[in-house]
């Protein structure tokens, strides 16, 4: 179970002493973490532990939060995500995000929803957009369900379909990393299963980080798990190790339901 060494994996994303400040208060403190390429990493921990705060720091979402600032390093393929010369839009193309609630543009067609990111950067080539739309919807396992109604509004889809549409939109710009912030918490069990299966399929192509309140989900879908508690990273290891024999007492107490 523990024969494979963690450090044999290729690192895609890395943080060094990363702290997110809200004014004078740190949301997460001195987080140093390696995210492995084409693996699923789950962030778990009780409400307010900082997992979403940390996730959002990975594609500069805090740039949009008043009073928030980030210290320390966040690197993608060794490149500083917070390099002031870098356009955050470029970073967010490399590191896409899927939110807790599906975020389709409700009146926009399914087609336009998927290619919105490309149109935003000025791509108008119809053939290319068609190809990207089909590829992304297939990757998000939605193509078969919507291929005959691409002109219908995104808002006409069910909750689970809308979330897969959001995933398709994130995939359309070919991100290297996909951040998922509780992507199934607003979905029914069947749609949740579908998204979990999709995560397993997508990790062949992209590196995935998922924040989840659902420990069972973390154990099912992830290869690595990071446990956060009151802004600290308590433990990071292979998911199998975390869920069978964690090193830290706090981790054990949390995953066995003694608090949280």
């Amino acid at each position: 179970m523990t024969t494979e060494k963690i450090n044999e994996q290729k690192i895609r994303l890395q943080t060094k002493d990363l702290t997110v400040w809200y004014g004078q208060t740190p949301g997460v403190k001195d987080i140093s973490l390696d995210i492995y390429d084409k693996k699923v990493t789950a962030f778990i921990g009780p409400s307010g532990c900082g997992k979403t705060t940390f996730l959002r720091a990975l594609n500069r979402m805090h740039d949009l939060t008043r009073g928030a600032r980030v210290t320390g390093k966040a690197l993608i393929d060794g490149q500083d995500i917070y390099d002031p010369k870098l356009d955050p839009v470029i970073i967010r193309r490399k590191i896409g995000m899927v939110f807790q609630k599906p975020t389709p543009f409700p009146t926009m067609s399914i087609y336009d929803n998927v290619v919105a990111g490309l149109k935003l950067v000025g791509i108008r080539d119809r053939k290319l957009l068609d190809e990207v739309c089909e590829r992304s919807l297939k990757q998000a396992a939605l193509w078969e369900e919507v291929k005959d109604r691409l002109k219908s509004p995104g808002g006409s889809l069910s909750g689970g379909q809308q979330q897969r549409l959001s995933i398709a939109r994130a995939l359309a710009v070919e991100p290297e990393v996909l951040l998922m912030d509780e992507p199934t918490s607003s979905l029914d069990p069947q749609s949740t299963t579908r998204i979990e299966e999709l995560i397993g399929e997508l990790k062949e192509q992209v590196t995935i980080i998922i924040v989840t309140h659902n420990m069972q989900q973390a154990s099912r879908v992830s290869d690595y798990t990071a446990f956060f508690y009151i802004g600290d990273l308590i433990e990071f290891d292979k998911t199998t190790k975390i869920f069978t024999n964690p090193d830290q007492k706090r981790t054990e107490e949390y995953i066995t339901g003694q608090f949280g």
Binding site: M1, Q216, S219, R220, T239, T240, F243, T244
Partner: peptide
Amino acid sequence: EEDCLKLLALYQ
């Protein structure tokens, strides 16, 4: 045995 324990722990 480790595989079985892993499946019990990870997939309930």
